[in-house]
């Protein structure tokens, strides 16, 4: 009996080894060549003009918007909201698990965290900035043409216009920055500058100055999966560049679409309620 069991074990292990080797075989080929290790093994379908086709509705399904760093579940900010407002735990998306804040900036981050209920721009329905827009818990759509790639975000109707022509310089600072893109083989590389200093990276108070420079690399890993990474540089805030990495998934619902989340209406009482005429009431809503 024992011999039979051992025999079965051997067969099972051998089968597993063989299966694993087979499954890895296609990936092992190109990776074993001279190409850099980071080069995606997957070749995305092409658009009519021959570029990797990233069109679609996408969403990062993770907890980075609560805190980019590894974090356990935690209390929310509003007692009345109970478990709905509690912070969901997250494994972390920052390479090396640490954001290299300069000393003064580290203090500012702590202050932001302490006052996050009033300071987080998301609470006021402000534009999310970059890279935060990419991992808000809302979908976004990529609309890809030859000269320009649009990213349209459900949250606050935010938009990124990625110029795929000759790079241009930001005419002024903005929330979503000024993006120039280029193709490096399978990878869309987006270089974004021209930010103001008002957006945050997450609800935990991670922030930047108007010297922020973000370089993103996006490539398809399979038909429904993007590999996303963003290198973040800001000499006023960080001692060195740092990087976040995460997958972004295709929204597969039949007829998935970007719907309207015009949140201004939802925050007016919060922002301007103290200026209402005494005795007046906001219109009812349900």
């Amino acid at each position: 009996m024992q011999t039979l069991f051992r025999g079965l074990m051997v067969v099972t292990v051998l089968t597993l080894v063989a299966a694993t080797a087979l499954a890895q075989a296609p990936a092992a080929g190109p990776a074993g060549q001279a190409a850099p290790a980071a080069a995606p093994a997957y070749r995305a379908p092409r658009t009519a003009d021959g570029r990797p086709n990233l069109n679609g509705i996408w969403q990062a399904v993770n907890e980075a918007n609560w805190d980019l760093l590894p974090h356990a579940a935690n209390f929310g900010r509003v007692v009345a909201l109970g478990a709905e407002d509690a912070v969901p735990p997250g494994i972390g998306w920052v390479d090396g698990g640490e954001i290299p804040y300069l000393p003064a900036a580290a203090a500012k981050k702590k202050e932001n965290y302490d006052k996050r209920l009033t300071l987080d721009p998301e609470i006021k329905c402000y534009l999310p900035g970059v890279p935060r827009a990419m991992y808000m818990p809302f979908p976004f759509q990529v609309i890809q043409s030859k000269d320009v790639i649009m990213m349209v975000f459900e949250y606050a109707g935010a938009v990124r216009t990625i110029n795929m022509g000759k790079p241009t310089e930001a005419p002024a600072d903005s929330w979503m920055g000024w993006s120039n893109g280029r193709w490096e083989g399978e990878t869309l590389v987006i270089d974004t500058t021209g930010f103001n200093d008002m957006s945050w990276f997450d609800r935990a108070g991670d922030f930047h100055s108007d010297e922020l420079h973000v370089v993103e690399r996006i490539s398809a890993a399979s038909p429904d999966l993007l590999n996303y990474e963003a290198t973040i540089e800001d000499k006023n805030t960080f001692s060195k560049p740092w990087k976040i990495t995460m997958p972004i998934y295709r929204r597969k619902e039949k007829n998935a679409q970007i719907m309207e989340f015009k949140c201004v209406e939802f925050v007016e009482e919060l922002i301007y309620g103290n200026l209402r005429k005494p005795g007046t009431q906001p219109p009812p809503h349900n």
């Binding site: 009519a48 649009m150 349209v152």
Partner: peptide
């Protein structure tokens, strides 16, 4: 306005309030 056409969609960006219309062309309801 800026009009951009991607696979299966027409997008119209309005400057004011960065409003975007994304119009699907696939005959969905």
């Amino acid at each position: 306005y800026q009009i951009v056409q991607g696979q299966g969609y027409v997008m119209i960006l309005t400057e004011m309030i960065h409003d975007v219309r994304i119009i699907p062309l696939d005959g969905r309801p």
